[in-house]
């Protein structure tokens, strides 16, 4: 009985930690003006797909950084649901506290606002348990996850950082101010930053004897490709691809820079 109580208490503590993580990861976007409007004008199919993508990423993070020591797919599913719950509750509570949501807000708008904001908060909730717990040995799942796991982590890191800056008007403006030559330099700089970070941080499964060229192909090029795809998806979600091909390519390159850095440092965070 006493053991059971302790177990429940531990879980509650985990939830509190998760709420802390949700706050930490969620508040920059909760305090970003453009994010409030997306809830109202984002297409409902895009929003639904976005919630689905969020849930999948949180599930993936649970595979590598869950609440518990030993996990089965069912445990991961439960943890994912808990992280999503914490994310939604924290997002809704903060939006209410800031006076952005009140009983007069239209349902459609309120649901959209909370759903968009819940994404970073849920990811934070899942990661918090990995980062903030002290008394537990590090679970090294990601080391055994192999190459697909590494790709997933890079994608999740790219998604998180890209998502954090994508909603702002500055992203568009930077794209407009840059010439095509600036864009080329930015692509090369993103690749260089990614390669240097990958090498200094050291991805699991990357052998010391591995040549630079192979690491470049398997981590840097693959990671940058992921960063570009993630940027494309995030821009599409926010309806920023409707202006024409030139604008779209430029925006993908601009957002690809934070996404590439996110891909490279994902391993540090998880």
């Amino acid at each position: 009985m006493a053991r059971r109580v302790r177990k429940e208490e531990n879980y509650l503590r985990g939830l509190a930690r998760a709420a802390g993580g949700a706050l930490l990861f969620g508040f920059p976007l909760l305090m970003t003006m453009e994010m409030w409007a997306f809830g109202a004008h984002m297409g409902r199919w895009r929003l639904a797909l976005f919630v689905l993508v969020t849930a999948s990423v949180v599930y993936g993070l649970s595979r590598f950084a869950g609440f518990r020591e030993v996990t089965s797919p069912l445990d991961d599913l439960l943890d994912t649901a808990a992280a999503l719950l914490v994310g939604f509750v924290v997002a809704a509570a903060l939006l209410c506290m800031f006076g952005l949501l009140d009983p007069e807000t239209a349902w459609r708008e309120a649901v959209g606002m909370i759903a968009v904001q819940a994404a970073p908060a849920s990811m934070g909730a899942m990661l918090a348990n990995r980062q903030l717990q002290r008394d537990r040995p590090r679970r090294d799942d990601e080391d055994h996850a192999g190459y697909p796991g590494q790709l997933f982590l890079m994608g999740a890191g790219a998604l998180f950082l890209a998502f954090n800056v994508a909603p702002t008007e500055e992203m568009l403006l930077i794209g407009f101010r840059m010439s095509a030559w600036h864009a080329i330099v930015l692509v090369l700089a993103s690749l260089a930053a990614l390669h240097v970070l990958v090498f200094t941080v050291g991805f699991a499964g990357q052998h010391d004897s591995e040549s630079h060229l192979r690491a470049f192909a398997h981590f840097t090029l693959a990671g940058y490709g992921l960063a570009l795809l993630v940027s494309l998806y995030v821009l599409w979600t926010f309806g920023r691809l409707d202006g024409g091909l030139s604008e779209a390519v430029r925006a993908v390159v601009v957002l690809g820079f934070p996404a590439a850095i996110g891909a490279a440092i994902a391993r540090l965070v998880v």
Partner: peptide, 17 residues
């Protein structure tokens, strides 16, 4: 993964150039 990455990177570079 490396091939897709290379393709996308070269595509973006090519279009910008």
């Amino acid at each position: 993964a490396a091939a897709i990455g290379a393709l996308l990177t070269l595509g973006v570079l090519g279009y910008s150039a």
